[in-house]
Design a protein around this nucleic acid. Structure first.
Length: 490
RNA sequence: GGUCGGUUGGCCGAGUGGCUAGGCACCGGUCUGCAAAACCGGGUACAGCGGUUCGACUCCGCUACCGACCUCCA
C-alpha cells in the first residue's frame, strides 16, 4: 500500500505512519454510544471523525473492517455510592418501558441521526448484550492467569498485580501510586483489594433487571469488558486501530489495555486514536453536565441556545473545519459561518458542471492542488487545511466562470474529479438537495417567472422585475444575475 | 492536589524558526438599472515577561488565565 498517512497515536504521543498488521486489510474499532438518551453534538463529532478515517482508509485502497459497538447494558449511575442503578434500567423505569425498548428507541434515533449526518454504517455493530459469553470467557482467561479475583459474587481486575509485570497507565500517563492517593474513598470498596481495581463482573442487586447467569453470580459485565471482548472477537488479537473520545482514555481505554494485555500477553491495539471534545462556553458538552444539545434539536432549532435550525451538513462541515484533536467551541456565530462557508463550497462545486474548458489553464495548478489535499489528509487527517485548499479551487472556478481565467480540458476533468473525491467521497459532504418531489414543475415555474422578470428588465420596468425578485426571495429562492443569464437557488 | 493540553486578528479556526492558511463578519473597488452573487484589494493576529538565534507567533524557562482527565461521559 503506497501512501504516507500519518496518524497520531495516543500510546506514543506522536504521529506514526499507518501500517496495518495484514495489509490490505485494516481493522478499526470505535466506542459507540450507550443508548439511553438522544444523541448530541458530541456523538456527531466522534462519529464524523472516524467516518473520515474510515472513508480515507478505503479511499487509499484498504479493505477496512469498521466495528462500532452499541452499549446496551452496563454503566451504573452512582455505582460507587451504592445506589447502583443501571442508566438504561433507570430510563426504562422513568419512561415505563422494558429496558430493551429503551435500547431500541435510542438506538433507532442514533442510527437515524448518523444517516442524516451522512456517516457510513460500520461493517459490524455488535451489542454488549449479545456478547455476554465472550465477556465471560475473557473473565475466565483473566482468572486463570491470576489477574482477577472473585469477591462476593463479583469479579475484579487485580490492577496492582498486573502493574507488577506491566504498565497500568501506559496510555493515560497515570502512575499507580498517584492513583492510589487520588482515588476517592468510595462505598462498596470493601469488596475490592484496592480502590483502583475495576469490575469485570458485577453481582446484580435484588432489583436489577438486566442480568445473566454466570459461575460467579447472576449479574452483568463491567463496562470496560465489552469493548475488549468484542473488538478482539471481530478484529483479532491484536488489531490495528481503536478510536473514541478523549474522555475515554482514562479509565475506559486504560482498563481495556490492561484486560486485553493480561489476556493476550501482548498489547491489543496498535494505534489508539482519540478525538477532542466539543465545548460550549468553554466547557465540555456532556450529557452528565446537562449542557448538551441533541442533534434533533439542532435540526429543528428548538433549543434555548439555538438562534436557528441547522442542517446536518452544516454540522458536519463545522466539525471538519477544525482538526479532530482540537476542541471546538459551539456558538451560533460559528455555526452560521460554517453554514455560509459550506454553501459557498457547494455552489462552487456545482458550477464545475457548467464550466467550459478553453485554451490553456491560467491561475490554477490542479496537480499541485491535488497533492496538497493529499498531504493535508496524510498529515493526521488535517481536514481544515484540506478544506482551505478546496476553497482555493472554488475561487479558481469562480474566476473561470467570470471569464477572468481559463482552464484546459484535461485540467477541468482533473479538477472535477479532485473536488468530487475530496468533498463527497472523503469528507462525506452531500450536495445540497434540489427541491424534492415536484422539482420539475417548481423549476419550470421559477424559470417562467424569471423570464417575465427579464422581459420587465428589458423594458426598464424595474418595479415589476424587483417585485418578482422580492417575492421569490420571500419564498426562499435566491436569484443570481451573472454574465450568462440568471440563475436561482433555494 | 496530581497528570495532560490550550491561550492566534471582530468571530471561528489552521500552521510554520524567515515564504498570503481558510471560512464568516467588516471596509473600499469592479460588474449590475439597483441589489444579491462573483471577482480584486484592505486591516500591521499570534496571553505576558525573560532567554536561545542573524531572525520566534513558532524552540526553552517563568508568570497569568482557561480547559480535559483523575467518577459515568463521545
Amino acid at each position: 500500500m503506497d501512501h504516507k498517512l500519518y496518524i497520531y497515536n495516543t500510546l506514543s504521543r506522536s504521529k506514526e505512519k499507518f501500517e496495518p498488521l495484514n495489509p490490505p486489510f485494516a481493522g478499526m474499532y470505535v466506542c459507540g454510544p450507550t443508548v439511553y438518551s438522544n444523541p448530541h453534538l458530541g456523538h456527531a463529532r466522534v462519529n464524523t471523525v472516524f467516518d473520515i478515517l474510515y472513508r480515507y482508509l478505503k479511499h487509499l485502497g484498504y479493505k477496512v473492517r469498521y466495528v462500532r459497538n452499541i452499549t446496551d447494558v452496563g454503566h451504573l449511575e452512582n455505582e460507587d455510592l451504592g445506589e447502583g442503578e443501571d442508566r438504561i434500567a433507570k430510563k426504562a423505569r422513568q419512561e415505563e418501558l422494558e429496558p430493551m425498548e429503551v435500547v431500541q428507541k435510542y438506538m433507532n434515533a442514533f442510527h437515524r441521526n448518523m444517516r442524516e449526518l451522512n456517516i457510513l454504517d460500520p461493517d459490524i455493530e455488535p451489542r454488549a448484550t449479545g456478547h455476554i459469553i465472550e465477556q465471560q470467557q475473557l473473565i475466565n482467561r483473566l482468572l486463570d492467569k491470576g489477574l482477577a479475583y472473585v469477591s462476593n459474587g463479583s469479579v475484579y481486575f487485580d490492577v496492582s498485580r498486573y502493574n507488577s509485570s506491566h504498565n497500568y497507565g501506559i496510555l493515560s500517563g497515570r502512575v499507580l501510586d498517584e492513583l492510589m492517593n487520588n482515588t476517592r474513598e468510595l462505598e462498596g470498596q470493601d469488596e475490592k483489594n484496592n480502590p483502583y481495581d475495576f469490575a469485570l463482573w458485577k453481582k446484580a442487586g435484588p432489583k436489577h433487571i438486566m442480568k445473566w447467569p454466570s459461575p460467579w453470580s447472576d449479574g452483568f459485565p463491567g463496562w470496560h469488558l465489552e469493548c475488549s471482548a468484542m473488538s478482539m472477537k471481530y478484529l483479532g488479537e491484536p488489531f490495528d486501530i481503536h478510536g473514541g473520545g478523549m474522555d475515554l482514555i482514562f479509565p475506559h481505554h486504560e482498563c481495556e489495555i490492561a484486560q486485553s494485555t493480561a489476556a493476550l500477553d501482548k498489547q491489543p491495539v496498535r494505534y489508539w486514536v482519540h478525538n477532542n471534545m466539543i465545548t460550549i462556553n468553554g466547557q465540555k458538552m456532556a450529557r452528565s453536565l446537562g449542557n448538551f444539545i441533541t442533534l434533533d434539536e439542532l435540526w429543528s432549532g428548538n433549543h434555548k441556545l439555538l438562534q436557528q435550525a441547522y442542517d446536518p451538513m452544516t454540522i458536519r462541515f463545522f466539525i471538519l473545519q477544525a482538526h479532530y484533536r482540537s476542541t471546538i467551541d459551539f456558538s451560533n456565530e460559528a455555526l452560521q459561518a460554517a453554514e455560509k462557508g459550506y454553501n459557498r463550497l457547494m455552489e462552487g462545486i456545482e458550477k464545475l458542471d457548467s464550466l467550459e474548458a478553453g485554451g490553456q489553464s491560467s491561475g490554477i495548478d490542479v496537480d499541485g492542488l491535488s497533492s496538497r489535499c493529499y498531504e493535508a489528509m496524510n498529515d493526521d487527517l488535517n481536514t481544515p487545511v484540506m478544506i482551505s485548499y478546496l476553497f482555493e479551487g472554488v475561487r479558481s472556478i469562480n474566476s473561470i466562470a467570470d471569464g477572468r481565467e481559463n482552464i484546459g480540458r484535461e485540467d477541468l476533468e482533473k479538477l472535477r474529479s479532485l473536488l468530487n473525491t475530496m468533498a463527497f467521497d472523503i469528507l462525506g459532504l452531500k450536495k445540497k438537495e434540489k427541491p424534492a418531489g415536484d422539482t420539475g414543475l417548481t423549476g419550470k415555474l421559477i424559470e417562467a417567472l424569471l423570464e417575465l422578470r427579464q422581459k420587465a428588465k428589458d423594458n426598464k420596468d424595474y418595479d415589476t422585475s424587483d417585485r418578482i425578485r422580492t417575492q421569490l426571495n420571500h419564498l426562499g429562492i435566491t436569484i443570481k444575475d451573472t454574465k450568462d443569464g440568471t440563475g436561482w437557488s433555494l
